[in-house]
Every structure is written in C-alpha cells, then in structure tokens.
Design a protein around this nucleic acid. Structure first.
Lengths: 200, 200
DNA sequence: GTTTTGATGTGAAATTATTCACAGAAGAAA
DNA sequence: TTTCTTCTGTGAATAATTTCACATCAAAAC
C-alpha cells in the first residue's frame, strides 16, 4: 500500500486534477506543487509510487494521471455512504456540493429525532436511527459519516461496524474504538482550531 | 517549538484532559493512550517535551498537566475568531457547542448575502462581507474561519490576512496562498472522505 | 521491612518521510 | 543539426517521528 502521507496528499491531488479537467493536457510537478502547497520534489516522489511516466518538458498527462490515481486510491467505482446525525453539521454535509456526483453516493441520512426527520427537506432518504443497522445492510452502505453529539458517537460507530460499514469519517471529538480492520478518520474542529492557536 | 505532530496530538489531549476535569486527580499514560487512540510510549514521549514530571505508579497530575499544556499551546488567554461564510457549514460552526466557552470567542460572522444576514438568528454579530476588513481590525480578531465556496476562498483569505488575522482555519478545498508567517490549517471534507475510501 | 508491582523518563534503535542532487530525456531555439 | 533549456525519475542523504527497552522510582501488598 501507498505510504499514508502520500495517500493523503494524493487524495487532495485527485481533486486538483479533476478541477484541471480538460483545460490542459499536461501538468508539471511544479505547477501541481503550487496548487497543492508543497514542493515539486514531493509531487514527483509521490507520483513515482505509481506506475506512470511523465514527459520531459511537458509534465504528466492529466487524464492519464487522474485515471492512474483513481485506480491506486480505489476510486474506480462509487461508494455508498450515509450520514448519521442530522443536526446543523449533518444537514450541511447532506447537501455538500463536493460530495455529489463524484465517487460518493450519499444514500441515506439518520437521526434519532423523529420530528427532525419529518421536517427535513432533502432528496436523500432520511431514517430514524433505529433503522441504521437495517438500512445499512439493505443498501450495502460501506461508509458511515458520524455527525452526532459526543455522547452517542461511540454507540453509532459500533452499530455502523456491526452493520458492515468498512470505513468511518467522524466529526466527533471523542476517540472512537473500532476494530483495526475498519478505516477510521477523524476530523475534530475544536482540536483543529486549537492547533491553529498553538502555531501562532 | 514543539514538533508539529506532537503539538497536534496535544491539542486533542487537551480536550481529553478537560473532559476528565476533576473526576480524577491523576491519569496514567496508558489511560490517556486509550482515550487518544495511540500508545503510552507516544503519550510519554510527547509529555516529555513539556517541563513536567509524572508520579510513579500514579501517572500525571491532571490539573497540573492541563495547565502546563495550556501554557505550551498558548491557550492561556481566549482568542477572538470570526467565521466567514454563513452557509450551512458556517452557521453550523457559529453555534458549534465545542467552540463555546473555552479558549475561543467567536465574535463575528460574515456573509456576502444581505438577506441571509437579516434572516439569521444568532447571538453572535453578523456582518456583510464588505465589512470584513473593518470589523476584524476593530475587534482585534486574530483567527479567521473560512467556510465560503471555493471560488471566493482565496479572496477572503487575502482580506483576512490584510486585516491582521494571524491564523486561518479553512474548510475550503482549494489551497490557499498566505504569507508564511500566517498559520494555515485546512480541513477538506472531500479529501478526507476520499482518504477513507483509499484506505479501505 | 521487604518484595512486588505498575508507573515514569529517556537514550537509542528503527522506521518513515522529506529533501536534495543530478543524470537522462526531449522539446524549443538557433 | 546542435545547443539550450526545462522537465522527469530516483538513489542517496537528511530529517522527523515512532517505537523500544530498561533503569528508576515509589506505592501497595505481604
């Protein structure tokens, strides 16, 4: 497997390549470095982990690089995901532009508040949390996005794992315990904000 | 300065210590490791960068460790922050529980849509984006949180920097260009989701 | 009082990640 | 054609980070 940091950078690179689209046929490591906020060394080193060749004085073939990256990062097919917790953050994610269309299918939302479920207007099906297990299994959802309050995050994570989810993106500040074969990535706003302060 | 990774972990550690509060007087590296999702080695190594001593067979004195961390991470005073972009994500952040009360003062919100500003119900003052520069300077805001669409993120960042902000937390997927003395931390949901997929 | 146990603290080793340096390739220019 | 220039590719050097191992300590148990 790709080194973790390389993979993380490549996920960002993938987004950048998509935004380049067909606007240019080639892109150099130097140009990519600017768009990525790294150095051209890093770009080339990262790409060297792929089985791909750039062209002298031209750079990399955008569509070829995109396709190779997609394969390396397993984006070759769309993944079904769900969002658990439809508070402000959860609903923000529900219609987050960037999630749409490309690589991910947000196929369900869950909340424990029945009123909230009824009030919500969205094109995505929403369910009560008690249906989590059932719906995840039925729809073959592979990724769970956790946007519930800290108190219920672990419970949700456990249910998601039991229902067959393979990866979890958590916005909760609590450390979730999941089996080691489950991919877990946490984004904690408060920690991030603290980090900014600490680096000032 | 603390190594970057250490600082990042410590920001999380700080939150955990706060949640322990006065529930227990001491906490061991092993216990912290579980709560952090790392190893006790790492915890001890990180703490060893501080000028603090644990107690044999007891662990670290919670309140002492908290205070020392707060100093090392510069949390000794609250920081004024603002949120630019009051779409779903921005408003979610506006009343994000965890930001409240502790270490941060979200003192302003900005949006370029006048109607939205008028409709919003919040205890935090909201302004039109054209007042960004003025308000940031006047209130002495040091941290900017960017939650605007990709297209305007760079412009907002530039304005924030010009207005005297020292740190930026960005939720935009575009790479922002800021002077190197400005602290920049980016959280990109789409990249994160992609990363989860890539690690499955 | 002595032994056992369960902690810390830290130098050293191992691992991982980044940066560098430069050979090689080929488009562009002369 | 020949030279100049600008790009890649990668092994090597460096740097950063994590992991380990174990000396040391003091509370707890006996």
């Amino acid at each position: 497997m790709l080194p973790a940091n390389t993979a993380e950078r490549m996920c960002k690179l993938y987004g950048i390549l998509q935004s380049i689209g067909t606007n240019s046929e080639y892109v150099s490591s130097k140009e990519l470095a600017v768009m990525m906020g790294t150095t051209d060394h890093t770009i080339r080193k990262d790409i060297s982990a792929l089985n791909i060749m750039g062209f002298t004085r031209k750079g990399y073939h955008v569509s070829e690089l995109t396709a190779t990256l997609a394969e390396a990062l397993k984006f070759s097919r769309p993944y079904k995901a769900c969002i658990v917790g439809l508070g402000r953050l959860g609903t923000a994610l529900l219609d987050y532009e960037a999630f749409k269309g490309d690589g991910f299918d947000i196929v369900a939302g869950f909340d424990s508040n029945t009123n909230k479920i009824e009030r919500l207007r969205t094109t995505i099906a929403v369910y009560h949390s008690s249906d989590l297990d059932h719906v995840v299994k039925n729809k073959g959802i592979e990724i769970g996005i956790i946007a519930v309050p800290a108190g219920s995050a672990q419970e949700v994570a456990t249910t998601l794992v039991k229902s067959g989810v393979k990866g979890i993106l958590s916005f909760s500040s609590v450390q979730l315990k999941v089996p080691k074969e489950i991919v877990l990535y946490s984004m904690d706003f408060t920690s991030a904000l603290r980090f900014v302060v600490s680096q000032i």
